[in-house]
Design a protein around this nucleic acid. Structure first.
Length: 490
RNA sequence: GCUCGUGUAGUGUAGUUCGGUCCAUCAUGACGGACUCUCGAUCCGUCGACCCGGGUUCAAAUCCCGGCACGAGCACCA
C-alpha cells in the first residue's frame, strides 16, 4: 500500500470527503423527522429533506418520522390527496417507507392539552390584542395588557376560544418569553390561533389550531426527535422553541440547517404557486413535465438514486445556492446510461425505397458498450424511414447497417461495411415503425414531436435512450398503436 | 430599523474546530484532443477560486478587528 500509493497515506484533508458529515450530539438512538405541509405533492426542494433525513437514519440506524404539518386551514389548506402522494413519494426516494407517520390534525388533543398546561402554569396566556396592536408592543418592548391578567381570566378566554365563542383574530395564545429580548421575533410569540374555517380532514371539530412553532415543538418532543434538519429560515423557530422547551423543562434536539436552493431552470417555486397555475389551466396537473414536482421527475424517468447522490454530494451548507438541472441530469445519466436500452426514434419521418438489400434481417446492439447483451432484430422490408432533417444529404450511413446514396425517394445501398466518413444517421425499417410522439418541455410550453419509434420489445414505463436524441420514458402504448414518450434529458 | 446567518473557480463542494503537510479537493461546466457505426458512453488534457482592508505570526482560506455583499426572520403561513 505504502509502496503502490504513498501519496494516499498523506494529504488527508486534501481530498473531498464523501457522504454526509457526522451528526452532532448523542447519536446512539437517532430520531429525525421530515415535516411537509400536505398542500400539494413533494417538490424537488422537498426531496432534499427526504434524502438528507433518510440518509442520516441509514448512517446511524435511526428512524425518520414523516409528519404532516397540516394545522393551517386558511392560508395553506391541506389537499386530502397529498397525504397519500407524499407517503408514496417518500418511499420512492428513501427506498423504504417512513418509520412513523403522524398527522398533526389527528393529534390535536395533545397540543390543546399542552396549551392549557402552559396557561395554567403561567408561561402562556391568551392575548386579545389585535395583530396590529401587538406589533406595536413588540416594537416598543412593552408588555401587552393581556400578559398581566390572571390565570383564571386567561383560562376562561381559552375556553371561549375553544367553544367557538370568539371569532378568528379575536384571541391568540402566546408563550411568555421576555418583551425586552433583543430579537423581536422571540418576544411573546404566538402559539395557537382561532380558525373557524373547517379542516378538510378534521372538519369543524376544533376552533383553535396550533401554529407551526408550537405544534412542531410539542410533536418533536412526543416523538423523541433527537436531530432536526431544517432550512436556516427556521433558525428563529429553533430559538422560539428552545424558550418553550425551557418552560416545559425538556431538552431541545440538535438543530442543523441548510440554505435556500434555487434551480436555474425552475426559478423559485412554491407549492401554493403551482396549485394556482394548475387550477387556472396553464399547467396540466401536478405531473406536468414543466413542473419541479417529484411526480413530474418520476414521470420523466429520473432515478431516485440520482437524486439521492446529488443531495448527498451537496451536503448540508448554510449557503444559499443556485443549482442547475444539468448537474442533476449528469448524476442521472451516469447512473442509468449503462442499463438503459437504445431505441430508434425518427421524428418527422420520410419514406425511402430501399434497393440493394440482400439480407432480410439487421441486428442492432441493445447497448453499444455491451453492458446489456444481445441485439435488437429488425426485419427488413422494401422501405425505410429516416428523419426529414437528415434527408438533405445524398450519402449517409444507416447506423449499424449500410452506406447508402439517396436520390429522390430511393435509397441505394453502396456498401455494407463502412467505406468512408459519411455521416451516420438513425433509421427504422417501415415494417417495425410504430407511430409515436415525444413530448418535450420548451420554455413556457410543451412541444410534441411526432414520428415513429422502433417497435422492438417496448415496455411501458421503461426509460430508453433514443439514438441521437436523448433519454425518454415510454409512458403509454395506446390501443391504436401510438407510443407516447416523455422527454427526460440529453 | 432590530435580530440571525452566509461569503473558496461559471455552478456546487472539500479544507476553516486544533494556523504550516493547501502554489487549495472533487464533481459539474466550457474548450481542445483520443476513441467509438448516436448529437450517447469512455479516456486524456486545458481553463478557472480563498469578498475587501488592516492586524497577530517565521507562517493565515484557517486566528483577531473593521468594512462590504448577499440571504433569512421580526405572519393570528409552513
Amino acid at each position: 500500500m505504502a509502496r503502490t500509493a504513498p501519496e494516499a497515506l498523506e494529504r488527508e484533508k486534501h481530498r473531498k470527503a464523501d457522504g454526509l458529515r457526522e451528526l452532532p450530539g448523542d447519536t446512539s438512538q437517532v430520531v429525525l423527522r421530515f415535516a411537509p405541509n400536505p398542500n400539494g405533492p413533494l417538490t424537488l426542494g422537498h426531496s432534499r429533506g427526504v434524502v438528507i433525513n433518510s440518509e442520516y437514519a441509514k448512517m446511524y440506524d435511526g428512524k425518520v418520522v414523516l409528519r404532516f404539518d397540516d394545522t393551517d386551514t386558511r392560508v395553506k389548506p391541506p389537499l386530502p390527496d397529498a397525504y397519500g402522494w407524499i407517503e408514496d413519494e417518500y418511499e420512492w426516494l428513501a427506498g423504504r417507507p417512513a418509520d412513523v407517520i403522524v398527522r398533526a390534525s389527528e393529534r390535536m388533543p395533545i397540543y390543546l392539552e399542552h396549551a392549557e398546561q402552559m396557561i395554567t402554569e403561567g408561561f402562556g396566556y391568551v392575548c386579545r390584542c389585535s395583530a396590529d396592536e401587538f406589533r406595536g408592543f413588540r416594537e416598543d418592548k412593552q408588555n401587552c395588557p393581556c400578559r398581566g391578567r390572571s390565570v383564571t381570566e386567561s383560562l376562561s378566554d381559552w375556553k371561549s376560544m375553544n367553544d367557538g365563542k370568539m371569532q378568528d383574530g379575536e384571541g391568540v395564545v402566546r408563550v411568555k418569553t421576555d418583551m425586552t429580548l433583543p430579537n423581536p421575533a422571540l418576544r411573546d410569540w404566538p402559539a395557537l390561533r382561532i380558525q373557524h374555517t373547517p379542516h378538510p380532514l378534521a372538519g369543524d371539530r376544533y376552533k383553535v389550531w396550533p401554529l407551526l412553532d408550537f405544534q412542531s415543538a410539542i410533536e418533536d418532543h412526543e416523538q423523541g426527535v433527537t436531530h432536526i434538519v431544517r432550512g436556516k429560515d427556521l433558525m428563529d423557530s429553533t430559538r422560539k422553541q428552545t424558550l418553550l422547551y425551557e418552560h416545559f423543562r425538556w431538552e431541545y434536539p440538535e438543530p442543523l440547517y441548510w440554505g435556500r436552493v434555487k434551480v436555474h431552470e425552475f426559478g423559485s417555486f412554491s407549492t401554493s404557486g403551482m396549485r394556482t397555475t394548475i387550477e387556472s389551466g396553464s399547467h396540466e396537473g401536478w405531473g406536468d413535465l414543466r413542473l419541479p414536482t417529484l411526480k413530474a421527475l418520476r414521470r420523466r424517468g429520473f432515478s431516485a438514486q440520482a437524486l439521492r447522490d446529488f443531495w448527498i454530494d451537496l451536503g448540508l451548507s448554510q449557503k444559499d445556492i443556485s443549482i442547475s438541472m444539468q448537474t442533476i441530469e449528469a448524476f442521472n445519466s451516469s447512473l442509468i446510461d449503462s442499463s438503459v436500452e437504445r431505441r430508434s426514434f425518427v421524428a418527422s419521418p420520410i419514406t425511402l425505397e430501399l434497393r440493394g438489400a440482400n439480407e432480410q434481417r439487421v441486428n442492432v446492439p441493445r447497448h453499444p458498450n455491451g453492458t446489456i447483451p444481445g441485439s435488437r432484430e429488425w426485419e427488413l422490408t422494401g422501405s425505410i424511414l429516416i428523419q426529414a432533417s437528415d434527408a438533405g444529404q445524398r450519402k449517409v450511413r444507416l447506423k449499424e447497417f449500410a452506406d447508402i446514396e439517396t436520390s429522390g425517394d430511393v435509397a441505394t445501398i453502396e456498401s455494407f461495411d463502412r467505406s468512408d466518413e459519411r455521416p451516420i444517421i438513425h433509421w427504422i425499417p417501415t415494417g417495425i415503425a410504430r407511430k409515436a410522439e415525444l413530448v418535450t418541455p420548451a420554455g413556457e410550453g410543451l412541444v410534441t414531436q411526432t414520428g415513429v419509434l422502433e417497435d422492438f420489445e417496448l415496455v411501458v414505463g421503461e426509460t430508453y435512450q433514443l439514438e441521437r436524441v436523448g433519454f425518454a420514458r415510454l409512458e403509454e402504448l395506446s390501443k391504436d398503436g401510438l407510443a407516447k414518450l416523455v422527454w427526460l434529458h440529453g
